[in-house]
């Protein structure tokens, strides 16, 4: 029982991290109608910028975080101006842009591999203290991960739901031509979606890399977690993405309860896929017209 409680707590922390990633993936996906594979690149760029600032340049942590977020924002703008915007101007199909985005992920992770090496890099840090909440023990970093990611996910959700620019992002995804006809500031909307996406990906990236380190090829795994969570929750529903992430985190915890921990990812993905097969629209997905059915 105590083990189960502990695993549920770990699952909640993992769920909060993945919720941010799913939102970072989903906002770009929802606004551009592009499968944002380069989200994985965004993740590793933030991690390695943090590593370069904190471990190589020996900056204080707070400064290193700012540097990493700035680098991540610059990378998001590079993706937008060098790839996504030209593809959108040319009205390239979604699959075409997705493969270009996959190309960007491959290029990025290998540039990082050449620069920093293929092996796992960790940022040296003092051991994190741990806190007991009843039978559950969490490290201080885990508490931070949960609090910061849950808060960021909630705030970004409010921005998306309430602000003018957030609604404009959704409108762009629904009717790109109408958005153009209405003279909405497309450039600004697109840049906002990319930057908000970059922030939502980078914050969990930094917190994960501070904990377990990083390797240049981990982007694909996080992309899969984020996209799986987003599609599981319902691909057009912001709060659904959070629910999908929570389901993924708890499924991983449930697996570890009964099986050796190396099966966590494998079995959790299989479980989610199994549920999704019976509900292809995702938990909170809405029905669509036949010609745009998923």
């Amino acid at each position: 029982m105590e083990l189960l409680l502990q695993l549920v707590a770990n699952g909640l922390v993992q769920g909060a991290l993945v919720a941010c990633l799913a939102a970072g993936f989903g906002i770009v996906y929802r606004s551009f109608r592009v499968f944002h594979v380069a989200m994985g690149a965004q993740f590793v760029v933030a991690s390695y910028a943090f590593y370069a600032a904190a471990a190589i340049a020996k900056m204080p942590t707070a400064v290193a975080v700012v540097v990493a977020l700035a680098a991540s924002a610059a990378f998001a703008m590079l993706l937008e101006f060098a790839m996504y915007r030209p593809f959108a101007k040319r009205r390239c199909a979604g699959g075409t842009t997705m493969i270009a985005s996959l190309g960007a992920l491959i290029v990025t992770e290998n540039v990082l591999a050449i620069t920093f090496g293929n092996e796992v890099k960790t940022i040296p840090h003092a051991p994190y203290g741990s806190m007991a909440l009843g039978a559950v023990r969490l490290t201080s970093l885990q508490l931070w991960q949960f609090a910061v990611c849950a808060a960021l996910f909630a705030v970004a959700g409010l921005v998306v739901a309430k602000s003018r620019i957030g609604k404009a992002c959704w409108a762009l995804g629904d009717e790109p031509d109408l958005a153009r006809a209405l003279r909405l500031p497309l450039g600004r909307i697109r840049a906002t979606a990319m930057l908000l996406g970059a922030l939502l990906v980078s914050v969990p990236a930094l917190m994960v890399s501070a904990d377990t380190g990083m390797d240049p090829h981990e982007g694909m795994r996080w992309l899969l977690m984020a996209s799986m969570a987003a599609f599981f929750g319902g691909r057009d529903r912001y709060w659904g993405w959070g629910a999908g992430a929570l389901a993924l985190g708890l499924a991983q915890a449930a697996v570890v309860w009964r099986l050796p921990s190396q099966w966590a990812d494998t079995a959790a993905f299989a479980m989610l896929l199994g549920v999704l097969a019976f509900r292809p629209r995702g938990l909170f997905g809405r029905a669509r017209r036949a010609e745009e059915a998923a």
Partner: peptide, 20 residues
């Protein structure tokens, strides 16, 4: 059961499970 991007995500998940 899926088409388009959802199909791709599902195949990626299968690939991940198979590798596991």
């Amino acid at each position: 059961r899926f088409r388009n991007e959802t199909f791709t995500v599902a195949t990626m998940a299968v690939q991940m499970v198979a590798f596991g």
